[in-house]
Design a protein around this nucleic acid. Structure first.
Lengths: 120, 120
DNA sequence: TATTCATTTAACCGATATGTTATCTAACCT
DNA sequence: AGGTTAGATAACATATCGGTTAAATGAATA
């Protein structure tokens, strides 16, 4: 439904993330997807419904089976959202860092650098 | 706690995403953060606790106020996770596309291209 | 057509999430 | 000390989530 809402809440469940991991390697039927998990088939079926309504997978009837495929477009959307904030954050972090260096006369370099402030 | 779990479920709530949006523009006190929302202060306080335990914000007592700052490192982690799957997906999409072109002798170009298969 | 296989839907249950109001707690100000 | 301000915590109601078992659906097959 609502894009980010449903995307993030679908991704919040580890079983669903595992299912997506499996689907990243290729399409799969419901039964195959369920096998590695220790939960009932209806439970998996519901996870798949959640993933589908978050547009993270597509399902297609193929004969007696129902085949699921990953559709990562929603992930791209979520990733862009995250990137926007990360960038905003790291820029303000850089500004703060610079400000501290200026005002406190720190030696530039190792001491105040942070692995996560790299621009991407 | 568990990284992706808590990150994604913290991000699944629109109020919390709004709070993060506000914090991307700079630190803010709890009261300031609460003002634009139509919910009680305790509700906001709990949202902030969720964000803090997902390591998306840090809080610091400053006199009578408690100031919140964005910490986007967890977002970077989530974004990398998403990127991995998106890339995997678009590559296999490309393979499929190529395969179809080869086997069905489609004219390369417009017809079978898809805006979402671009490599990033 | 009856049976079987693959999966979904229904009905239910306990745990968790989100919101509310009322009650602390901690820092600041006379 | 006593009062005010800024937030957190407690106690509670309600909704949603994730799981279960039992029953229904829909396509393939004997």
């Amino acid at each position: 439904m609502n894009n980010l809402n449903s995307t993030f809440s679908a991704l919040a469940d580890p079983t669903r993330r595992s299912i997506l991991a499996r689907l990243a390697q290729g399409e799969s039927s419901v039964g195959e997807l369920a096998r590695p998990f220790d939960v009932s088939l209806p439970a998996i079926s519901r996870h798949l419904r959640v993933l589908e309504s978050a547009a993270l997978i597509v399902r297609e009837r193929r004969g007696k089976h129902r085949v699921c495929r990953l559709d990562a477009r929603a992930m791209v959307g979520a990733s862009l959202w995250l990137d926007f904030y990360s960038r905003f954050w790291s820029e303000s972090f850089d500004r703060l860092d610079k400000h501290l260096k200026q005002t406190r006369q720190l030696k530039p370099g190792k001491g105040s650098s942070n692995a996560n402030t790299k621009k991407r």
